[in-house]
Structure formats: C-alpha cells, structure tokens
Computed example of a mutant assay.
Amino acid sequence: MSRVRVDVHTHLGRHGTHVRGPLAEDEIRAWGRVSWDVTVEQHAAAAAAADTSIVLAFDAEPVGVVVPNDYVAAAVAGRPQLIGFASVNPTRPDASYRLADAVEKLGLRGLKLGPTYQHFHPHSKQCLDLLEVANHYELPVIWHQGTTFTRAAVAEYARPVQLDLVARRFPKLRMWIAHFGHPWMAETASVIRRHEHFYVDVSAMDTRPWQLAQALAAAAEYRVLDRVLFGSDFPFSTVEQTVAGLRRAAALCRSLGIADISDNHVDDICSRDALSLLGIDRPTVAVK
C-alpha cells in the first residue's frame, strides 16, 4: 500500500458528549450505527497510518455536534504527527474572538467550516468577517461544502459554487473542499481550477466508488488532479480503506474509459505534500 504523507481530514469525539442528536440519531437512521465515537487514543492509533494527520474541531451546535477547540488542542499536544484545526460557527456573536483565541492561546493551525451544518450562508457578512480573521492569521480553511445525511442540515447552503465568491474575495487564502463536494464533483472541480490556492480532498468517498470515479475523472478533465489531497474522514473511514477505494475508483475509470487514472496518479495523491500546499509549517516537538 502507498504510504500516505498527509491525511488532511480526521475527526475525534465521543458519542453522547460531543456528538448528540439530531445528527447522532440521523447517523443511525442512515447507516445503522454511530461511527463518530472515538477516543483520543483510538484516533492517535489510527492516525499512525499516515505521516501527519489534521484533526478537526467542529462547532456545529445546530446539528448537535460540538468538538471543542480546546479538546482538539489537548488531543494533539505532544503528538507532533497531529495538527489541530479550530472550528468556529460564524453566527456566534464572539466568533472572531474565538478564532483568534484558538490560534493565539491554543496553537491551532487552521479553520473548519461547514455551512450546511452550522446554518450560515458562505456569502453572509458573518462568514466573511470570520474569514478576515483567518486571512489575517494565514489559516488554511477546510469547507464541508456538499451533501450530508442529517435532516438538520440546511441543504441550500451546501453547493460548492458558493465558494467562488469567497475565493475571489480572499485570493491568498488557502482553502479546500471536503468529500470532493459530492454529489457535485464536477462543480467542485470547475470552481477550484479558477483559483490558485484552492484544493479538494477525497475523504469518505471510498464508500461511493462510482462517485469517486466520477470525481477523479472530473479532476482529470478540468486538469486539477494536482489539487486533489488525501483525506480519510476517520472514523468514518480509514487510511487503508481510502487508499483501496482510490485504487478501485481508478480501475473503474480505466475499465469504463472515462479517464486514464493510473495507480501512479493514486500514488501521487497519497504522497502529496499537502502541508506545503496549504502553507502549514511541519509540526515540531515542543520543548517543555
């Protein structure tokens, strides 16, 4: 199996503490079980399959998920292979302060946003004001811009094309769209190709081989295969499952004749230096 250099998309958090209803109940309805129930130790063990992993906080109280910034900061402390990202809902009155605090006091290195979960439009003043803070600190931003299983989400906030305005407003801000923006993979590819510092990850797409094949084909057609980052979406998937899913999707592309995606292309995704692309310094062990 290809060694994964950077997994740009992982989660931790406990069911009943950080992950509650309505999302937890909808996860059972959609998948038959709760996957988002993982300890710090379980996460660290799974993350060993990659050289470096980004760990995401998530401030999505409207759907019942709050994985706090300080919880993530404590989880990555002393683990130089892990990089913590903050999450702040832009609708909070003190959103800008919370993000500055996460950077300056907690040492978090990026920002996670999910408009469909956090109930804000990407063009809203609240969002753009928070992105001014991210831009000031040169924080990379990961967006969940795509569909989701929970009925508590706001679907009209989820289209990838809505981030075109954001990228125009902040041309130097490094950003990426999670899950290839499914089911709008071609729309995602068409948006990111327009902007120098815009990327996409393949997290959780291994369970949808046809959509992942279409995503890789769209990336090839729009000539943005070099913008595709590796992400597992642990605990919903693993590094090993994601690599295997990429190989299956590449083979499907070839067998159907929709794109010439080779195993070398998959190896490129796995070995891509996402930290450099996202402007993140390599983690070091803090001296105590």
Rank of each mutant, 00 (worst) to 15 (best):
H123E: 06
Q118V: 07
V141D: 12
K125I: 14
P140D: 13
V141N: 07
H121K: 01
P140W: 13
H123T: 01
T150W: 05
Q145D: 00
H144S: 03
K125V: 15
A155T: 09
L131Q: 04
N135F: 01
H121L: 02
C127A: 14
L128H: 09
A152M: 04
T148I: 00
H136M: 14
E138A: 14
T148D: 06
H136I: 14
K125G: 11
H144Q: 08
H121S: 10
I142P: 01
W143K: 06
L139C: 13
N135C: 02
T147F: 09
H123D: 09
G146V: 01
P122T: 07
H119Y: 13
W143R: 05
F120E: 11
S124H: 09
S124L: 10
T147G: 12
H144G: 02
D129K: 06
F149D: 01
K125R: 15
L130W: 04
Q126F: 04
F120Q: 08
E138M: 10
R151F: 11
H144D: 09
V133A: 03
H121G: 04
Y137S: 09
V133Q: 04
Q145L: 07
F149Y: 05
P122Q: 07
F149V: 00
D129R: 08
I142M: 14
L131F: 06
Q126I: 04
A152P: 08
D129T: 06
H121I: 04
A152E: 10
W143Q: 07
T147I: 13
H121W: 05
T150K: 01
C127N: 15
E138D: 15
K125L: 14
A155N: 03
F120A: 06
